[in-house]
Nucleic acid binder design. Sequence first.
DNA 1: TAGGCCATGTAAAAAGTTACATGATTTT
DNA 2: AAAATCATGTAACTTTTTACATGGCCTA
Lengths: 179, 179
Amino acid sequence: MPLADMSSLSPTARVILGLLRFAPRTGYGIKQATDRSTRFFWGASYGQIYPELRRLEAAGLVESHEEPRGKVPRRVYRLTDAGRHKFESWLSEPDDQYEVRDEGLLRLFFGEAMPREHLEELVRRRREWYQGAAALFRGIGEAIGPIEAEDPSGHVLRYGIELMEWNADWWERLERELS
Amino acid sequence: MPLADMSSLSPTARVILGLLRFAPRTGYGIKQATDRSTRFFWGASYGQIYPELRRLEAAGLVESHEEPRGKVPRRVYRLTDAGRHKFESWLSEPDDQYEVRDEGLLRLFFGEAMPREHLEELVRRRREWYQGAAALFRGIGEAIGPIEAEDPSGHVLRYGIELMEWNADWWERLERELS
DNA sequence: TAGGCCATGTAAAAAGTTACATGATTTT
DNA sequence: AAAATCATGTAACTTTTTACATGGCCTA
């Protein structure tokens, strides 16, 4: 029985539904999974996850049952058929607009006027971040991975790895140019 | 006289201040400038720009004067010294976290399960978007550019062009693989 | 036994989007 | 004469962040 207005899914709702497709999880588990996977293009905080799970349940897109560990209350959520269907119809929608928000790039865009040492620092950090991201993406490809990636040769994963590597390279080159 | 709490700048405030560094502008002009430049990593809507300009003025970071065109009221904003200083100290802050939000990637991340024809469509659109973005960035490099780019050989612009080209290539390759 | 991890949540604030409303000026 | 562009704004809503609060379980 859909009670809440879920005619359109918020990005966070989509992350949640998408992760639950692979396995049932607790709110906490969803947070861990996003931190290890989607955080590179869409993060989520507890302040969104828990309320969103309740909204999704009210709309009949997920269902939950209690599964305590000793005295620790614990609620495991899983996708309903309606939820799976809703998610898949979102996937099928045309998406015309790719909106990207990248505060680091914003800073760099205006940063040409920065003192040299700050610029070098910024470039170094950015390079390190991309190296970490590349390593993480490669790790997902090798291990079972937090998202239980069905197909380790999947396009997206490859895109992720290659994009992060390209970036790590680019920033490393700039770093060398500057020094 | 700073009246509003501007101890920390919102991203939109930073875009505004950053653009005003090059030239005084109206709210409308700021919107045009973002649409042609920062929109690829940070967009802004009128609903943010006009109220933010008033907050910035209340805080003494920008100042404005009326400059009507005929009967059309028109208010031109420019940076104050305090605003310039504030912006430059933001540039100098260390930034540890690069948070990126990319809804298109989110979709693709989960999209492996998509019906083939939807996937192809998505890939095609994405390729086209990147080709457009690459063209636009190259255009900025050639023309004076809406942001009055001081140095057309600047790192960021080069980064933008090369990133968009890399992406256009990547998605084109995937498109061919799929067909 | 202490520190880290698992686990759930809320309240307030901040940030951003969307839809609406209005009208002059400039270009085709 | 029509269409595009310049120009300013608001109200309601949605989305996200941040800071707080609590406490059991596991392992070194």
